[in-house]
Design a binder for these strands. Structure first.
Lengths: 112, 112
DNA sequence: CTAAGATACCTCATCTGTCAAGGTATATTG
DNA sequence: CAATATACCTTGACAGATGAGGTATCTTAG
């Protein structure tokens, strides 16, 4: 993950929910998708990922169920709830607004 | 600060350093500048701000000195060090790269 | 057959940054 | 004289991220 880490920090939930907006998925697969999308620049630490799943499920934003693989390691699939869709939309809106704001704050002001 | 809070979280150092890149300044003034630049959407909690100052100073990124006001409350001015300039540049570069990455991660992928 | 690596999940303890809540002190303005 | 603005500070609690450890299955190379 080299760079990026600090900025992505705090957006764990939004990234996970974005994946679940497309389809039910499971931890390992979501993390593979993130690695692939970032060209290897970022990946979740496992502890971070599973902590987030528990947090989101306990708050009612996602639900989980065991996959019925008859081969390979078992998978716990997650599904986004209507409540989670709302959260996702709010997080995206926040991101958009806040990215614009940060863009203004992070560069030095002209001297007065 | 209503919205924004989560996204700005983690960029305290970069925002402070950006201000100090322009000129030496002090806590209260930096926070006023932030409020003004964001149209009132965001401001630092004082504890967050002063915690950050201490962290940055202990790490050698900024130095401080007391202003010589002969009126009004005393001010502790902060000055960015060469080491701090380096950090600032690194943080900005990270922000730019990471904002682009997040932009890709935060929207749902097309179903395959 | 066996070792290594990929797949897949989980927990615990610790660290770091944020922030609510409290405090001090001075100057200005109604 | 009270309220408000300026200006700084500390403490304790909390939440999210993470290092380090663990379990189990399947595939592939030697």
């Amino acid at each position: 993950m080299s760079i990026a880490s600090d900025v992505i920090r705090g957006h764990t939930d939004a990234i996970i929910l974005a994946q679940l907006m497309a389809e039910d998925s499971y931890g390992y697969k979501i993390n593979r998708a993130v690695v692939e999308k970032t060209g290897g620049l970022f990946e979740f630490k496992e502890a971070t990922l599973y902590t987030a799943f528990r947090r989101l499920e306990q708050s009612g934003y996602i639900t989980s169920y065991w996959g019925d693989e008859n081969t390979g390691a078992r998978r716990r699939y997650y599904s986004i709830t209507p409540y989670g869709v709302e959260l996702y939309q709010r997080l995206v809106a926040e991101w958009e607004q806040s990215a614009a704001i940060l863009q203004r704050l992070i560069y030095p002001p002209k001297q007065s």
